[in-house]
Amino acid sequence: MAVWWVNQGSTFAASVKQELLWSPDSAVPSHWRHMREVQVGDLVIHYAQGVRALGVVIADARGWPRPKGFNSDWDDAGLMVRVDYRVFDDPIPLAEMPVELRTDQIFEGPFNKNHGVKQGYLWAATTEIYDWVLERVGGPAPAAADGSSGGGSTGPGQPEGQTHHYSGTVDVVFEGVARGEQAALRRFLFGTATVAECAVCGRLLPVSLLRAAHIKRRSACSDDERRDFRAVAMPACVLGCDALFELGWISVDGAGVVVAVGELSGDAEAARALLIGRTCKAFSDWTAPHFAWHLSKASDSGLSPELVAMALPEGAGSPEVELAR
């Protein structure tokens, strides 16, 4: 588990709304290269004229077009990391952070010799900084991703005295919030079966290759919705279906049919095309409202208004779009 410091400035609001980090895909400068080093379960400190949020990485970096709200002078193509945010009511001024934490001795860290924040996007941070922020704001940390892990070597360009051998603590106690219902949700979907069907592609697969995939984003679900296992999730395979649905490249219309959202090309479009037009096995009276929510959020990618309207409850009107790619 690594800890990162991200300088978001004017992109903070857009990043929170879309639950992501994004930068151009480049090895130079190093603060952009770090995007490829981020792993699921890593912790993030979000800075924008003060420490504004804590986050936890829930999906590794992948190619992604420049999101809405980001600098139009940057390349259209870049890297996106999906993050669960915990946004604070009030920013923490940098001056409140103890000066000993704001040291320029952190390798590729966020601070300069004057204990201020360096220019650049994504920098390495420490658990000590994260713990100080967490204690300062009180309350729980963002939910840790299942199976989180981190770490890695720094490679070329290490400062003198630093080697490939890590001498710090490898087991760090992390107090956070886990998804208490996840194990019970998997038991509801799969029982004691060792093989089950993906609701999207229909393939029979070992349950180790199937996710209990939330239809409506879990962070948007009410407490009651999270507890209603009939409606909240479906089996989706890690061979492509879970990622395409979670990222909004496919959705399910009001007739229970898998539909395309947005434009893909090459092998990605070829893989998606195999799913389009299939009947989603998880579609039911219980799940229909959640699929309608998903389609309304994904529709900003260019899906036809007719299909969006089909999935929305009668009289719902035009959906407010929050997801952007």
Score class of each variant (00 low, 15 high):
187 R>S: 09
126 T>Y: 09
211 R>M: 03
211 R>T: 05
170 V>R: 15
205 L>N: 03
187 R>N: 11
202 G>F: 08
194 T>H: 13
152 G>M: 10
97 M>E: 02
176 G>P: 03
111 F>P: 00
128 E>R: 14
104 D>V: 03
221 C>Q: 08
107 F>L: 12
213 A>P: 01
202 G>A: 06
212 A>F: 14
154 T>E: 05
139 G>C: 07
109 G>E: 06
140 P>L: 15
117 V>F: 08
208 S>Y: 06
182 Q>T: 05
114 N>V: 05
195 V>Y: 12
157 G>S: 08
110 P>Q: 07
87 V>M: 04
130 Y>A: 04
118 K>I: 10
182 Q>L: 15
169 T>I: 08
108 E>M: 15
123 W>Q: 06
197 E>V: 15
171 D>A: 13
141 A>K: 12
159 P>A: 03
222 S>F: 09
176 G>I: 02
191 G>V: 00
89 D>N: 03
131 D>C: 03
151 G>N: 11
124 A>Y: 13
139 G>P: 06
220 A>S: 14
148 S>M: 09
134 L>Q: 10
84 D>M: 11
95 A>K: 12
211 R>P: 00
221 C>N: 03
165 H>Q: 11
149 S>L: 09
101 L>R: 06
105 Q>V: 11
196 A>Q: 10
222 S>D: 12
193 A>G: 00
167 S>V: 13
187 R>I: 00
97 M>R: 04
203 R>T: 14
179 R>S: 14
166 Y>A: 10
184 A>W: 04
151 G>K: 06
165 H>P: 00
208 S>R: 13
137 V>H: 02
117 V>G: 05
133 V>Q: 02
174 F>Y: 12
220 A>P: 00
108 E>I: 01
117 V>M: 08
188 F>I: 00
135 E>Q: 12
86 R>E: 12
86 R>F: 02
120 G>D: 11
169 T>G: 03
223 D>Q: 13
148 S>H: 10
161 G>L: 02
88 F>M: 08
94 L>N: 01
159 P>I: 06
113 K>S: 13
175 E>A: 13
202 G>P: 02
123 W>L: 07
152 G>E: 01
132 W>T: 02
134 L>E: 10
159 P>T: 05
186 R>C: 04
218 R>I: 14
173 V>T: 09
129 I>E: 15
178 A>I: 07
154 T>I: 07
175 E>Y: 04
150 G>M: 01
205 L>S: 04
121 Y>M: 01
105 Q>C: 06
218 R>S: 13
119 Q>C: 03
223 D>M: 07
110 P>H: 12
118 K>Y: 04
166 Y>Q: 08
91 P>H: 06
84 D>P: 00
168 G>D: 09
104 D>L: 00
148 S>L: 05
149 S>C: 09
179 R>C: 03
170 V>M: 14
122 L>G: 01
87 V>H: 10
149 S>M: 10
